[in-house]
Amino acid sequence: MERKNMSSINIIHLLGFQMPHNIRFLIFFLFLIIYYVTLCGNLLIITLVSYSKSLHSPMYFFLSQLSISDILLITDILPNTFHGMLGKGTVLSFSDCHTQFYFFAVSETLECLLLTVMSYDRYLAICKPLHYSLTMNFQVCWMIVITCWALGFFLEMIHTLMISQLKFCGSGIVDHFFCDLDPILQLSCYDTTIIQLEVTLLSAVFIVIPFFIIIVSYIYIIITIFNIPSVTGRQKVFSTCSSHLTVVSIFFGTLICVYFLPSKGQSMNITKFLSLFYTVGTPLLNPMIYSLRNTDLKQAVDKIINHCLYFLLTET
Protein backbone atom coordinates (compact mmCIF):
# COMPACT_ATOMS: atom_id res chain seq x y z
CA MET A 1 0.00 0.00 0.00
CA GLU A 2 1.18 3.46 -0.85
CA ARG A 3 2.48 5.59 2.02
CA LYS A 4 2.20 9.36 1.98
CA ASN A 5 5.42 11.19 2.67
CA MET A 6 4.16 13.06 5.74
CA SER A 7 4.87 13.01 9.48
CA SER A 8 2.60 11.01 11.76
CA ILE A 9 -0.01 12.89 13.82
CA ASN A 10 -1.72 12.05 17.11
CA ILE A 11 -4.45 14.69 17.34
CA ILE A 12 -7.29 15.94 15.18
CA HIS A 13 -8.40 19.55 14.95
CA LEU A 14 -12.10 19.76 14.05
CA LEU A 15 -12.82 23.14 12.47
CA GLY A 16 -16.54 22.89 13.18
CA PHE A 17 -18.72 25.69 11.82
CA GLN A 18 -16.85 28.73 10.59
CA MET A 19 -19.02 31.73 11.37
CA PRO A 20 -18.65 35.46 12.14
CA HIS A 21 -17.68 36.13 15.74
CA ASN A 22 -20.69 38.38 16.35
CA ILE A 23 -23.17 35.53 15.80
CA ARG A 24 -21.06 32.77 17.37
CA PHE A 25 -22.75 33.03 20.79
CA LEU A 26 -26.20 33.28 19.21
CA ILE A 27 -25.66 30.01 17.33
CA PHE A 28 -24.19 28.46 20.48
CA PHE A 29 -27.29 29.25 22.54
CA LEU A 30 -29.53 28.07 19.69
CA PHE A 31 -27.78 24.68 19.66
CA LEU A 32 -27.85 24.57 23.46
CA ILE A 33 -31.62 25.07 23.42
CA ILE A 34 -31.94 22.37 20.75
CA TYR A 35 -29.89 20.01 22.91
CA TYR A 36 -32.02 20.50 26.04
CA VAL A 37 -35.30 20.36 24.09
CA THR A 38 -34.13 17.10 22.48
CA LEU A 39 -33.18 15.59 25.83
CA CYS A 40 -36.46 16.66 27.46
CA GLY A 41 -38.58 15.45 24.53
CA ASN A 42 -36.98 12.02 24.34
CA LEU A 43 -36.89 11.59 28.13
CA LEU A 44 -40.60 12.49 28.19
CA ILE A 45 -41.38 9.72 25.69
CA ILE A 46 -39.31 7.20 27.67
CA THR A 47 -41.10 8.21 30.89
CA LEU A 48 -44.57 8.09 29.33
CA VAL A 49 -44.00 4.66 27.80
CA SER A 50 -42.58 3.34 31.08
CA TYR A 51 -45.33 4.58 33.41
CA SER A 52 -48.48 4.85 31.28
CA LYS A 53 -50.29 1.51 30.99
CA SER A 54 -52.10 2.66 27.83
CA LEU A 55 -48.70 2.86 26.09
CA HIS A 56 -47.55 -0.65 27.04
CA SER A 57 -47.58 -1.93 23.47
CA PRO A 58 -44.82 -3.00 21.06
CA MET A 59 -45.11 0.17 18.98
CA TYR A 60 -44.40 2.46 21.93
CA PHE A 61 -41.80 0.10 23.37
CA PHE A 62 -39.80 0.40 20.14
CA LEU A 63 -40.40 4.16 20.20
CA SER A 64 -38.85 4.40 23.67
CA GLN A 65 -35.78 2.52 22.39
CA LEU A 66 -35.57 4.96 19.50
CA SER A 67 -35.58 7.82 22.03
CA ILE A 68 -32.68 6.20 23.91
CA SER A 69 -30.77 5.96 20.63
CA ASP A 70 -31.51 9.63 19.89
CA ILE A 71 -30.20 10.69 23.30
CA LEU A 72 -27.03 8.66 22.73
CA LEU A 73 -26.53 10.23 19.31
CA ILE A 74 -27.01 13.89 20.18
CA THR A 75 -25.01 13.58 23.44
CA ASP A 76 -22.16 12.05 21.46
CA ILE A 77 -22.13 14.89 18.90
CA LEU A 78 -23.14 18.22 20.46
CA PRO A 79 -20.90 18.66 23.56
CA ASN A 80 -17.75 18.77 21.41
CA THR A 81 -19.57 20.99 18.94
CA PHE A 82 -20.34 23.45 21.77
CA HIS A 83 -16.65 23.55 22.65
CA GLY A 84 -15.74 24.25 19.03
CA MET A 85 -18.26 27.09 18.77
CA LEU A 86 -16.83 28.88 21.80
CA GLY A 87 -13.24 28.45 20.63
CA LYS A 88 -11.48 28.02 17.32
CA GLY A 89 -12.53 24.48 16.67
CA THR A 90 -12.11 21.35 18.78
CA VAL A 91 -8.88 19.44 19.41
CA LEU A 92 -9.30 15.69 19.98
CA SER A 93 -6.93 12.80 20.38
CA PHE A 94 -7.40 9.97 17.91
CA SER A 95 -8.75 7.74 20.68
CA ASP A 96 -11.40 10.38 21.51
CA CYS A 97 -12.20 10.77 17.83
CA HIS A 98 -12.58 7.01 17.37
CA THR A 99 -14.80 6.85 20.47
CA GLN A 100 -17.04 9.59 19.10
CA PHE A 101 -17.25 7.87 15.73
CA TYR A 102 -18.00 4.53 17.41
CA PHE A 103 -21.01 5.78 19.38
CA PHE A 104 -22.17 7.79 16.37
CA ALA A 105 -22.04 4.66 14.19
CA VAL A 106 -23.77 2.56 16.88
CA SER A 107 -26.64 5.02 17.25
CA GLU A 108 -27.07 5.40 13.48
CA THR A 109 -27.04 1.62 12.97
CA LEU A 110 -29.50 1.18 15.84
CA GLU A 111 -31.77 3.88 14.41
CA CYS A 112 -31.85 2.10 11.03
CA LEU A 113 -32.66 -1.24 12.65
CA LEU A 114 -35.32 0.17 14.99
CA LEU A 115 -37.07 2.09 12.22
CA THR A 116 -37.13 -1.14 10.21
CA VAL A 117 -38.55 -3.11 13.14
CA MET A 118 -41.17 -0.41 13.73
CA SER A 119 -42.27 -0.60 10.08
CA TYR A 120 -42.57 -4.39 10.37
CA ASP A 121 -44.58 -3.92 13.57
CA ARG A 122 -46.99 -1.60 11.73
CA TYR A 123 -47.19 -4.12 8.87
CA LEU A 124 -48.21 -6.91 11.26
CA ALA A 125 -50.69 -4.67 13.13
CA ILE A 126 -52.43 -3.46 9.97
CA CYS A 127 -52.05 -6.34 7.50
CA LYS A 128 -52.05 -9.31 9.93
CA PRO A 129 -54.14 -8.09 12.88
CA LEU A 130 -55.37 -11.57 13.91
CA HIS A 131 -51.80 -12.85 14.36
CA TYR A 132 -50.35 -9.63 15.78
CA SER A 133 -50.70 -10.33 19.51
CA LEU A 134 -49.12 -13.78 19.13
CA THR A 135 -46.31 -12.72 16.79
CA MET A 136 -45.33 -9.46 18.48
CA ASN A 137 -45.52 -10.26 22.21
CA PHE A 138 -43.24 -8.57 24.73
CA GLN A 139 -40.83 -11.48 24.91
CA VAL A 140 -40.29 -11.23 21.16
CA CYS A 141 -39.99 -7.43 21.43
CA TRP A 142 -37.24 -7.71 24.05
CA MET A 143 -35.37 -10.27 21.94
CA ILE A 144 -35.59 -7.98 18.90
CA VAL A 145 -34.36 -4.92 20.83
CA ILE A 146 -31.48 -6.80 22.48
CA THR A 147 -30.46 -8.16 19.06
CA CYS A 148 -30.52 -4.65 17.56
CA TRP A 149 -28.35 -3.22 20.36
CA ALA A 150 -25.95 -6.18 20.24
CA LEU A 151 -25.55 -5.93 16.46
CA GLY A 152 -24.91 -2.20 16.67
CA PHE A 153 -22.28 -2.43 19.42
CA PHE A 154 -20.51 -5.55 18.13
CA LEU A 155 -20.30 -4.79 14.41
CA GLU A 156 -19.35 -1.16 14.87
CA MET A 157 -16.68 -2.22 17.39
CA ILE A 158 -15.03 -4.35 14.71
CA HIS A 159 -15.39 -1.52 12.22
CA THR A 160 -13.89 1.09 14.57
CA LEU A 161 -11.01 -1.17 15.64
CA MET A 162 -10.01 -1.66 12.00
CA ILE A 163 -9.95 2.11 11.46
CA SER A 164 -7.91 2.62 14.65
CA GLN A 165 -5.17 0.38 13.23
CA LEU A 166 -4.47 2.88 10.46
CA LYS A 167 -1.57 5.34 10.61
CA PHE A 168 -2.51 8.99 10.20
CA CYS A 169 -0.44 11.84 8.86
CA GLY A 170 -0.73 15.37 7.50
CA SER A 171 -1.99 18.53 9.14
CA GLY A 172 -4.63 16.79 11.29
CA ILE A 173 -7.15 19.50 10.36
CA VAL A 174 -10.66 18.24 9.58
CA ASP A 175 -13.28 20.56 8.12
CA HIS A 176 -16.22 19.02 9.95
CA PHE A 177 -18.01 19.34 13.29
CA PHE A 178 -17.61 15.70 14.37
CA CYS A 179 -15.49 12.65 13.58
CA ASP A 180 -17.31 11.20 10.61
CA LEU A 181 -15.87 8.36 8.55
CA ASP A 182 -14.70 10.16 5.39
CA PRO A 183 -12.82 12.96 7.22
CA ILE A 184 -10.98 10.34 9.33
CA LEU A 185 -10.02 8.20 6.34
CA GLN A 186 -8.73 11.24 4.44
CA LEU A 187 -6.02 11.62 7.10
CA SER A 188 -4.74 8.07 6.65
CA CYS A 189 -1.17 7.56 5.44
CA TYR A 190 -2.21 4.40 3.62
CA ASP A 191 -4.64 3.40 0.93
CA THR A 192 -8.08 2.95 2.52
CA THR A 193 -9.77 1.13 -0.38
CA ILE A 194 -10.37 -2.07 1.61
CA ILE A 195 -11.93 -0.20 4.54
CA GLN A 196 -14.10 1.87 2.19
CA LEU A 197 -15.27 -1.38 0.55
CA GLU A 198 -16.17 -2.77 3.97
CA VAL A 199 -18.05 0.45 4.75
CA THR A 200 -19.98 0.11 1.49
CA LEU A 201 -20.94 -3.47 2.38
CA LEU A 202 -22.01 -2.45 5.89
CA SER A 203 -24.01 0.43 4.42
CA ALA A 204 -25.78 -2.02 2.13
CA VAL A 205 -26.62 -4.24 5.11
CA PHE A 206 -27.70 -1.53 7.56
CA ILE A 207 -29.06 1.21 5.30
CA VAL A 208 -30.10 -0.16 1.90
CA ILE A 209 -31.63 -3.45 3.08
CA PRO A 210 -33.57 -1.85 5.99
CA PHE A 211 -34.79 0.89 3.66
CA PHE A 212 -35.95 -1.74 1.16
CA ILE A 213 -37.77 -3.67 3.91
CA ILE A 214 -39.50 -0.45 5.02
CA ILE A 215 -40.59 0.34 1.45
CA VAL A 216 -42.00 -3.17 0.95
CA SER A 217 -43.79 -3.02 4.33
CA TYR A 218 -45.45 0.27 3.45
CA ILE A 219 -46.48 -0.99 0.02
CA TYR A 220 -48.44 -3.77 1.74
CA ILE A 221 -49.75 -1.30 4.35
CA ILE A 222 -50.99 1.13 1.68
CA ILE A 223 -52.67 -1.69 -0.27
CA THR A 224 -54.41 -2.82 2.93
CA ILE A 225 -55.51 0.74 3.75
CA PHE A 226 -57.07 1.22 0.31
CA ASN A 227 -59.03 -2.00 0.81
CA ILE A 228 -60.72 -0.56 3.92
CA PRO A 229 -64.24 0.47 2.82
CA SER A 230 -64.79 3.52 5.06
CA VAL A 231 -62.86 6.79 4.71
CA THR A 232 -62.81 7.20 8.51
CA GLY A 233 -61.30 3.74 8.88
CA ARG A 234 -58.60 4.54 6.35
CA GLN A 235 -57.69 7.77 8.12
CA LYS A 236 -57.58 6.08 11.51
CA VAL A 237 -55.33 3.27 10.31
CA PHE A 238 -53.02 5.60 8.37
CA SER A 239 -52.64 7.90 11.39
CA THR A 240 -51.00 5.02 13.31
CA CYS A 241 -48.06 4.92 10.88
CA SER A 242 -47.88 8.46 9.43
CA SER A 243 -45.48 9.65 12.16
CA HIS A 244 -43.14 6.75 11.55
CA LEU A 245 -43.25 7.32 7.79
CA THR A 246 -42.33 11.00 8.30
CA VAL A 247 -39.34 10.09 10.51
CA VAL A 248 -38.18 7.44 8.02
CA SER A 249 -38.32 9.93 5.14
CA ILE A 250 -36.23 12.52 7.01
CA PHE A 251 -33.67 10.06 8.38
CA PHE A 252 -33.03 7.89 5.32
CA GLY A 253 -33.34 10.86 2.95
CA THR A 254 -30.43 12.70 4.57
CA LEU A 255 -28.34 9.51 4.94
CA ILE A 256 -28.72 8.77 1.23
CA CYS A 257 -27.80 12.36 0.30
CA VAL A 258 -24.63 12.29 2.41
CA TYR A 259 -23.32 8.75 1.91
CA PHE A 260 -24.66 7.57 -1.45
CA LEU A 261 -24.87 10.60 -3.73
CA PRO A 262 -21.59 11.66 -5.39
CA SER A 263 -19.71 14.02 -3.07
CA LYS A 264 -17.17 15.20 -5.64
CA GLY A 265 -17.59 18.94 -6.14
CA GLN A 266 -20.06 19.14 -3.27
CA SER A 267 -19.42 21.99 -0.84
CA MET A 268 -18.30 20.95 2.65
CA ASN A 269 -20.83 23.42 4.06
CA ILE A 270 -23.60 21.47 2.30
CA THR A 271 -22.26 18.21 3.75
CA LYS A 272 -22.19 19.73 7.24
CA PHE A 273 -25.74 21.02 6.84
CA LEU A 274 -27.02 17.61 5.70
CA SER A 275 -25.12 15.93 8.54
CA LEU A 276 -26.93 18.20 10.99
CA PHE A 277 -30.24 16.67 9.89
CA TYR A 278 -29.45 13.12 11.00
CA THR A 279 -27.16 13.95 13.95
CA VAL A 280 -29.13 16.84 15.50
CA GLY A 281 -32.35 17.32 13.53
CA THR A 282 -33.66 13.75 13.71
CA PRO A 283 -33.26 13.37 17.52
CA LEU A 284 -35.00 16.75 17.90
CA LEU A 285 -37.84 16.06 15.48
CA ASN A 286 -38.61 12.44 16.45
CA PRO A 287 -40.34 13.20 19.79
CA MET A 288 -42.08 16.24 18.28
CA ILE A 289 -43.45 14.30 15.31
CA TYR A 290 -44.63 11.37 17.43
CA SER A 291 -46.06 13.60 20.18
CA LEU A 292 -47.89 16.09 17.97
CA ARG A 293 -49.42 13.44 15.72
CA ASN A 294 -50.21 10.74 18.25
CA THR A 295 -53.44 10.80 20.25
CA ASP A 296 -52.29 8.16 22.75
CA LEU A 297 -49.21 10.15 23.73
CA LYS A 298 -51.25 13.34 24.08
CA GLN A 299 -53.74 11.56 26.33
CA ALA A 300 -50.90 10.13 28.45
CA VAL A 301 -49.44 13.63 28.88
CA ASP A 302 -52.87 15.00 29.86
CA LYS A 303 -53.30 12.25 32.46
CA ILE A 304 -49.91 12.96 34.02
CA ILE A 305 -50.57 16.72 34.11
CA ASN A 306 -54.02 16.20 35.65
CA HIS A 307 -52.57 13.78 38.19
CA CYS A 308 -49.85 16.28 39.15
CA LEU A 309 -52.37 19.13 39.44
CA TYR A 310 -54.68 16.98 41.57
CA PHE A 311 -51.76 16.01 43.83
CA LEU A 312 -50.71 19.66 44.25
CA LEU A 313 -54.26 20.78 44.99
CA THR A 314 -54.84 18.07 47.57
CA GLU A 315 -51.51 18.84 49.27
CA THR A 316 -52.36 22.54 49.58
Score class of each variant (00 low, 15 high):
L73E: 02
T38K: 09
L32D: 04
G265I: 09
V145S: 09
S133A: 13
L55K: 10
L39E: 01
V199Y: 15
A105V: 00
Q65W: 14
M157C: 12
T81N: 04
A105L: 01
I222V: 12
G233Y: 00
K264A: 12
I221K: 07
T47S: 07
T47W: 15
F238C: 03
S275F: 03
R293K: 13
F168M: 06
L261Q: 05
I225D: 05
S52K: 15
F82S: 11
Y123V: 04
D302I: 13
S69K: 00
I33H: 03
N80A: 06
F104R: 04
C40A: 15
I184G: 05
T135F: 02
T271Y: 01
N294W: 01
T109V: 04
L201S: 13
I304W: 13
H56A: 14
T282C: 06
V205I: 13
S7P: 10
I12F: 05
I146S: 15
P262Q: 04
H244E: 12
F94E: 02
M157I: 03
I23V: 12
R122E: 06
C308H: 09
L114V: 10
D76W: 06
L313W: 13
H131R: 11
W149A: 08
G16E: 01
L134D: 05
S54W: 00
I9N: 07
S52D: 14
L274A: 09
L201Q: 14
P262L: 03
K128L: 12
E198P: 02
I74G: 15
I23E: 08
L255P: 05
P287N: 06
F206H: 11
L166K: 06
I194R: 11
F206R: 07
T47K: 15
Q196V: 10
N269S: 14
G84Q: 02
T282G: 00
F103Y: 10
D175W: 04
E315W: 09
F311H: 07
F62C: 03
F252T: 07
M268K: 13
K167A: 15
L261V: 11
F154A: 15
